[in-house]
C-alpha cells in the first residue's frame, strides 16, 4: 500500500505543478498588456468624457471634456466643454511640464497631473497615459473570480517614491488581461480609491474603457462615473498640443 501510494503522490504533485505553471501568467506579459491598455505609443488618441460626480449633501456635478493624447511624446490636452460657465478651461501637458488655462483671465497656471479633476474622484492622470511597467512591479498574482469573470488579482508595488499610489491592486481578466477593477492604496496601506471598469469598446482593434466608476473609500458616498464616447485613434494636428491652441479655443 505504501509502495503504491508514493508514485501516485509524485504523479499528483507533478500534475498539480504543471497545472500551476500552465495557469500562472507571465508577469512581464501582463505588465506589457497593462501598458498597451493605458498607453497608445504608436498612435494619437482622442475622446470625449462625461464626468459625473456625486458627494453627499452636494449637488451632482457634471463635466464634459475633450481629451487629446499623443503618448509617444507624453503630450496631453484636455478642454472643458460643459458646464457652459467653465467652457474653454484647458490643460496642457508636454513631457514634464504642465499648464492650466483660464479663458476668463487669459492666464496660464500651474497644473499637476496628480491633482483630482475638478474636485471629483477622478485624477487628471486618469485621462492621460500610464506606463505601469515603468512605475510598478508585480509582487503577487492570485487567481480569483470577479462577477462572471475568471481574473488574476495582481498586487503591484511602486518602484519609486514619486508615483501617487505606492500600492495598487488590479483585477484583470484571465483571457485578455483587461482590467476590470483596481484598488489604490496609501503609503500607510489604507485603501483610498476603487475603480470599476464596467464597459469596454473595441475601437480600431483596441479595447478602450468606456465606463469607469471611481469610489472614494475614505469619504463615504463620494463617487465619480466617467463615460467615454467619440473615441478616435486618428492623427491629431501638432497645433493642438500647444498653448496657443488653448488660447484660441478659449475665446
Amino acid at each position: 500500500m505504501k509502495v503504491k501510494s508514493v508514485p501516485l503522490l509524485v504523479l499528483m504533485l507533478i500534475v498539480s505543478w504543471t497545472g500551476l505553471t500552465a495557469q500562472t501568467p507571465d508577469r512581464a506579459e501582463i505588465l506589457d498588456s497593462l501598458d498597451r491598455q493605458s498607453s497608445y505609443r504608436d498612435t494619437d488618441f482622442s475622446a470625449e468624457y462625461t464626468i459625473v460626480s456625486e458627494k453627499p449633501g452636494q449637488e451632482r456635478s457634471v463635466f464634459q471634456v475633450r481629451s487629446f493624447r499623443r503618448d509617444s511624446s507624453d503630450s496631453f490636452v484636455m478642454v472643458i466643454l460643459e458646464p457652459r460657465v467653465r467652457r474653454g478651461e484647458g490643460y496642457l501637458q508636454l513631457g514634464e511640464t504642465a499648464w492650466s488655462y483660464d479663458p476668463e483671465s487669459r492666464e496660464f497656471g500651474v497644473f499637476s497631473m496628480k491633482e483630482n479633476f475638478q474636485d471629483s474622484e477622478a485624477r487628471n492622470s486618469d485621462f492621460s497615459s500610464l506606463t505601469v511597467s515603468e512605475s510598478y512591479e508585480i509582487t503577487d498574482i492570485q487567481q480569483a473570480r470577479l462577477g462572471s469573470f475568471d481574473v488574476y488579482l495582481l498586487d503591484l508595488k511602486a518602484l519609486n517614491d514619486r508615483v501617487t499610489f505606492p500600492r495598487i491592486r488590479f483585477w484583470v481578466r484571465q483571457d485578455n488581461y483587461l482590467v476590470l477593477k483596481e484598488e489604490m492604496y496609501s503609503l500607510s496601506g489604507r485603501l483610498m480609491r476603487t475603480g470599476l471598469i464596467t464597459s469596454y469598446a473595441r475601437v480600431s482593434g483596441r479595447f478602450v474603457p468606456t465606463k469607469i466608476l471611481y469610489v472614494d473609500n475614505l469619504n463615504q458616498g463620494e463617487r465619480t462615473e466617467i463615460t467615454a464616447r467619440n473615441i478616435s485613434f486618428q492623427d491629431i494636428p501638432d497645433s493642438v498640443f500647444t498653448r496657443s491652441y488653448l488660447e484660441r479655443i478659449g475665446r
Binding site: 514619486r162 501617487t164 489604490m184 500607510s188
Partner: peptide, 15 residues
C-alpha cells in the same frame, strides 16, 4: 479623524 495628505515626494498617504 482620518487625515489624507501627500508625502514630500508626492505619494498619497492616510493617517
Amino acid at each position: 479623524l482620518i487625515v489624507r495628505m501627500s508625502t514630500v515626494t508626492g505619494q498619497q498617504n492616510v493617517g
